[in-house]
Amino acid sequence: MAITSTTEIDRLIQLLSKLPGLGPRSARRAALDMLKRKETMLTPLAEALRSAAEGVSTCSKCGNLDATDPCSVCADDRRDQSTLCVVEDVADMWALERSGVYKGQYHILGGTLSALDGVGPEDLSIGSLIVRSEDDRVAEVILAMNATVEGQTTAHYVTDRLAGAGVRISRLAHGMPMGGELDYLDEGTLAWALKSRQPVTGV
């Protein structure tokens, strides 16, 4: 660290190194690159960061991050209002949006139940999910939690809580990934795929 001389640069490197995917070495490279391209990179980035810090907030309806509240997904009248897809985190919602196959509404729980980490139902946005699912327009709630012990424990808990809401509850399918070859799949995925096998239709 002695090579860099100013506290501003040190502070920049220190903050960058806290970002996911960056360590001190890559943070130093990124900082140097930005400082070399001050007009085309550093200043626009600083402005974009300031604008995001001031403008982006959590959607009061679904929990998404956006510059408007409600977010652009919730405000879009063309989207299907009858399905509500429940995900753990904003990143999961963005992943589903990237796929472009789901055109309904979302609800972000903000995590999963974890006794050892002290995360209980009151720490997740389950209450607002129940309120949303009681809306007459909602006919189906899709549980899109991760295929982990915590994810599925949360999914079962949410299923119980939605029991009186009068909606169809479904979950994402589990098993073979697209392009997956049996020889390369881990035993857990294989076991679950075999357990979740489905009858072949049309014969």
């Binding site: 012990v149 589990h174 857990g188 076991a191 679950w192 357990k195």
Partner: peptide, 13 residues
């Protein structure tokens, strides 16, 4: 992994 026990019970609450 020696035995994937979780996969066998994940969908049974």
């Amino acid at each position: 992994l020696a035995r994937p026990r979780v996969a066998m019970v994940l969908d049974d609450p």
